[in-house]
Design a protein around this nucleic acid. Structure first.
Lengths: 79, 79
DNA sequence: GTGTGACTTAAAGTCCGTT
DNA sequence: TAACGGACTTTAAGTCACA
């Protein structure tokens, strides 16, 4: 299981759990909409600087984005 | 605390715990010698593909490389 | 709201060295 | 053994139009 696959999955799970569109997440994280789409389709091997930005907006620590099994509560919709 | 800083620290801690030189780790992970050095000096924002390679050689899961506090046993010298 | 292709450019990553 | 620089190649990153 590559980190690309895990990231793609967690990104989508956490994003939808928060009720965010790709566009909304991208705007909040100050990155391009199509780039979020690209990551969820495993097009790129994201750098850790980007992971930091995305994790902050999803309310999790960066390393959680690369965990095979998300910890309990990670996908809760809490501001 | 950025992921760059956490990675730089964990890389050095885990590497030395395994008794590996930067070069030995680089060779094993099939990445460049100077790049390992660069990551430990926070010069670059590593991509997750490289993290996978490094983690495999250090005997930890990729996400562990980005944890502020390493889990117990992570820095043990076990093959 | 999302997927995708084509394209550009900034940064990752390599390879050669010296200190 | 590790830090570091320079020149180089490859890929992540960013933008845009369109389905």
């Amino acid at each position: 299981m590559s980190s690309r696959e895990i990231l793609a999955h967690n990104l989508r799970v956490l994003r939808t759990a928060k009720g965010l569109s790709q566009e909304a997440l991208a705007d909040a994280a100050e990155i391009d909409r199509t780039y979020v789409s690209s990551l969820e389709r495993k097009k790129y091997s994201a750098s850790i600087d980007r992971l930091d930005k995305l994790a902050a907006q999803l309310g999790v620590e960066t390393h959680v984005l690369l965990m095979k099994d998300l910890p309990p509560g990670a996908a809760d919709d809490k501001p």
